[in-house]
Design a protein around this nucleic acid. Structure first.
Lengths: 130, 130
DNA sequence: ACCCAAGTTTACGTATACGTCAACTACACG
DNA sequence: CGTGTAGTTGACGTATACGTAAACTTGGGT
């Protein structure tokens, strides 16, 4: 069981990725048109490799976090830079993004705590109401 | 020094709030048009109280987290419900939102960790390069 | 040879979240 | 009383992120 499952394969169709991640093929093509993906072509047909799939995962996570495709594009470039050993040039960008994310995390924790408080107040009242 | 500072005042103009939070007056009016705010009026002029200001803070925090105004509107209704002692009716909604937020928080931590790793790799290389 | 499913591009439409006039009203001051 | 400053309501424009429709190509199966 070393790795001969989903992740072991190397080639994916646009429809496979779309269905795996619950998005439309149109969306994937849109991300490509914005430069977030650059799958190979066989003729006109897109062929996605593991690297493209990994980028897609990062894109979707970024979207869940509320980032724009532009933001996500910058973020992906940090990964590219890392692979290209040029991260030093972008160190400031990493710090910027980290600061932003940490602020978001703080906002999130505040919000989660507030909701938990609302919920416990509600449950308390239900108790008393018996 | 009990409380006679910014938060002690009870009435605010639209311009005051706009400048305090670094947004446009147009934005505030837009939020009102979407039902997220409902300041009193003196004639046609909007008068904001502490409650309105508190809602505005929640709105802006929601936006930083990437939520739509529609999402934020639902969220605000949880607060209203709480005040109105009707939370039990919305308990499911609180759980839903908590689940969403906790997923976001996990996404954020993953992302932050990845960025930190990229950064430390970069610094490591800078070390070696002397 | 023929057809379908899956893929492609181009073009147009839509929702969200405002910005930007334009045109008007309402005090306040010198 | 004229000017300025702040406020108001439309109306229209814009960027982002796709969905949908149309029209075409292509590889595989029977």
């Amino acid at each position: 069981m070393s790795e001969k499952d989903t992740d072991s394969r190397d080639l994916f169709s646009i429809a496979e990725l779309a269905s795996e991640f619950g998005i439309s093929t149109r969306a994937i093509r849109f991300y490509e048109s914005k430069g977030l993906l650059a799958p190979e072509r066989v003729g006109a047909t897109r062929i996605f490799r593991k690297r493209d799939r990994a980028r897609l995962i990062l894109i979707l996570r970024g979207k869940r976090l509320g980032f724009t495709l532009r933001d996500i594009s910058d973020y992906l470039s940090l990964y590219d830079a890392d692979r290209a050993q040029q991260v030093n040039l972008l160190a400031g960008k990493v710090d910027e993004r980290l600061a932003l994310l940490e602020r978001q995390r703080d906002d999130l924790e505040t919000t989660i705590n507030e909701l938990r408080e609302i919920k416990s107040l509600a449950e308390e009242r239900l108790q008393k109401a018996g």
